[in-house]
């Protein structure tokens, strides 16, 4: 417990007054009349390592969009860093790694230029300073992509590209890292190393919010699991999740057999 509080005070911005990074209260949302997620309430505290799991179409990505303020809930309240999520605009506090489908696929742009974008929330209309470039190169180094700095992103493999996006999130030096199925297309070896990296970052006090389809990755690494299928079926420590019947409820019996570690 003592280590926990220590960790919070070291992350100077997050800890002091508000330890709740994300507060979701009684949220309902649907793109059409049918709700995609309903009766969602959850809190994410500074320093946590939370995974949101659920089958395809369970509303995981929608919940992420709601929490990031990209869409507004039909009902309920969402607060991000103690502000209404859709009004929150201090992007320097959030690092985001998407399913790699979201970025442009033909644009000529180098790995280093992609990672540079992680500094944009800090510099606004200005230019990157020498210190900013140092952070960019450090992030490149951390994901093992230094040799690829000047490669065109479109010529990389899926896994390499994903590493570049992770480096972009690192370069943003955020308090909260949000990752939406970040390891899709990444080779098995790198996946393991990637989760080690997330754990190291979490140990430094960075809050990790992971949206995952791969259950084994989640049960091996996350501290807390939120199991979603339209509504929350389970929210608690990972060990309790493994023993619970939430999997069966959310995924159905067949998937539970496969996914159960």
């Amino acid at each position: 417990m003592s280590t926990h509080t220590e960790r919070e005070t070291t992350t100077d911005q997050t800890a002091a007054s508000h330890s709740q990074l994300i507060e979701v209260t009684d949220v309902n949302f649907g793109y059409t009349a049918t709700p995609v997620v309903r009766d969602i309430s959850l809190q994410i505290e500074a320093g946590e390592y939370v995974a949101i799991v659920g089958p395809n179409g369970s509303g995981k990505s929608t919940l992420m969009k709601l929490m990031m303020g990209l869409v507004k809930p039909d009902e309920g309240r969402i607060r991000l860093f103690s502000e209404p999520a859709h009004k929150f605009d201090d992007g320097s506090r959030i690092g985001y790694v998407a399913q790699h489908a979201s970025a442009s696929k033909e644009m000529p742009i180098t790995v280093r230029e992609v990672i540079k974008m992680g500094r944009f929330p800090h510099i606004g209309f200005g230019r990157l300073s020498a210190a900013d470039w140092e952070i960019v190169d450090q992030a490149l180094e951390t994901v093992g992509m230094s040799a690829f700095a000047n490669r065109r992103v479109t010529n990389l493999s899926g896994g390499q590209r994903q590493r570049a996006f992770i480096a972009r999130a690192l370069a943003s030096e955020a308090d909260l890292l949000v990752l939406d199925e970040p390891t899709v297309g990444v080779d098995a070896e790198s996946v393991e190393a990637f989760y080690d990296l997330l754990e190291a970052l979490n140990d430094e006090g960075i809050t990790i919010l992971l949206i995952e389809h791969d259950l084994s990755a989640v049960t091996n690494h996350a501290e807390r699991v939120v199991c979603l299928n339209g509504q929350i079926h389970f929210d608690g420590p990972t060990e309790a999740f493994v023993e619970s019947d939430a999997l069966v409820q959310a995924f159905g019996t067949a998937a539970a057999g496969l996914g159960g570690v």
């Binding site: 990031m68 990209l70 992007g91 959030i94 985001y96 998407a98 979201s102 442009s104 929330p121 949000v178």
Partner: peptide, 23 residues
């Protein structure tokens, strides 16, 4: 010239740009 960073981010990855607080 003024908004080159923002235009680049929005062009390359609209969702990430939105998360990073750009309107």
């Amino acid at each position: 010239g003024l908004t080159r960073n923002q235009l680049l981010y929005v062009t390359f990855d609209e969702t990430a740009a939105a998360v990073s607080g750009l309107p």
